[in-house]
């Protein structure tokens, strides 16, 4: 098993899927000749040519719609939107065309497109380059949403997404492209539904996804070493549909839940997971579930304000300590 960076894992998945199927194409701003802002398509322009690795104009709704139209006739486009903040412009085509076409055609037509885009708060990028939009995508029927927390998932989720006949949105993170992790040497397809237990524990469940899984793992170590609390960390790599069974199983085991999200709390992953806990295992709870979320503000530029606006591992530790009265 080789250790790859997140971007290398994505690049490998692109390369393998393009080699496997001549109908797989990649589209996006600067992804071709320039190699991609995050290098996820590096070298593929030279290998597969301009017809299949397409540098698009800065027209997010237009090229997303173009990819969707191409998928109607059997192409398998992987569309990179350089920043999730720009994806707002493409929501019309993604939601109105891709997500609904199977249903409103009575099953005649499908849009097997993959849209990948990094969200999250990087370093001082300000209000219009720091959106966390997973909450927007995960409420749309007909669209699958996944969000890899490590290179293995980044590789395997993209491979499955390309082959799946539903439109899939892959929520990546600006800060995670250089994260390292083990990726199987052999070809690997990650399930698009479910969740993974990233750390076993018995006292409390920390639910995270994407970058917040790492905060949860750090917090779990601190809780174990300093407070004798064994936290289970559940990685919700699939945000739509959410893994009801997985959420229930872990809460039934630990009887306590903390949901950790980089996004603002209203109408988010945390509120949705909390609703599922309420519906599925209310009487198993030993304490009220808690959310650790970002401040509900447009992201400030100032470094100190920015750090204060988003959660960190210490905030997770504090939330758990409060829950246990420690």
């Amino acid at each position: 098993m080789a250790e790859l960076m997140y971007w290398e894992a994505l690049r490998r998945a692109h390369d393998e899927e393009m080699a496997n199927d001549p109908l797989v194409i990649c589209m996006g701003e600067d992804i071709g000749m320039a190699g991609g802002t995050y290098k996820a398509t590096q070298g593929l322009y030279d290998k597969y040519g301009a017809e299949r690795v397409i540098d698009t104009p800065i027209s997010e709704n237009g090229y997303t719609g173009l990819g969707i139209g191409a998928s109607f006739l059997g192409l398998r486009p992987i569309i990179e939107i350089m920043s999730v903040n720009f994806a707002w412009l493409a929501l019309d085509q993604l939601f109105n065309s891709a997500a609904k076409v199977r249903y409103m055609s009575g099953g005649q037509l499908e849009a097997p497109v993959v849209v990948r885009s990094p969200g999250g708060v990087a370093h001082q990028l300000g209000a219009q380059h720091s959106a966390r939009m997973e909450k927007v995508f995960m409420g749309i029927a007909g669209l699958r949403v996944v969000t890899p927390s490590n290179p293995r998932q980044a590789y395997g989720l993209l491979k499955s997404a390309v082959r799946c006949n539903d439109p899939v949105y892959i929520n990546e993170h600006e800060l995670m492209y250089n994260f390292k992790g083990e990726v199987p040497d052999e070809e690997y397809f990650h399930p698009l539904e479910g969740s993974e237990v990233a750390r076993e524990g018995k006292d409390v469940t920390l639910f995270g996804y994407n970058i917040s899984v790492h905060w949860c793992l750090q917090a779990a170590e601190t809780l174990s070493q300093q407070y004798g609390i064994e936290a289970e960390v559940v990685d919700l790599y699939a945000l739509s549909p959410l893994d009801r069974a997985g959420i229930r199983a872990s809460v039934n085991k630990t009887h306590r839940a903390v949901i950790v999200e980089e996004a603002e709390a209203p109408v988010g992953v945390g509120s949705e997971v909390m609703a599922i806990i309420n519906e599925e295992c209310f009487f198993e709870l030993d304490a009220a579930p808690v959310r650790v979320s970002a401040a509900n503000v447009p992201m400030p530029y100032n470094h100190t304000l920015e750090r204060a606006a988003i959660p960190k591992a210490d905030d997770v530790v504090a939330a758990v300590r409060k829950m246990f009265g420690k």
């Binding site: 109908l23 194409i25 017809e51 299949r52 709704n61 237009g62 090229y63 997303t64 719609g65 173009l66 990819g67 969707i68 139209g69 191409a70 998928s71 109607f72 006739l73 059997g74 192409l75 019309d92 085509q93 109105n96 065309s97 076409v101 409103m104 055609s105 037509l109």
Partner: peptide
């Protein structure tokens, strides 16, 4: 007949995408 769409202007890029697929094939 690849559909009727209710967002004004929605089919413009979808048509271009179908044309891209035709051309590639």
């Amino acid at each position: 007949f690849m559909g009727g769409y209710a967002l004004v202007g929605g089919p413009f890029p979808l048509a271009a995408g179908m044309a891209k697929a035709i051309k590639m094939k």
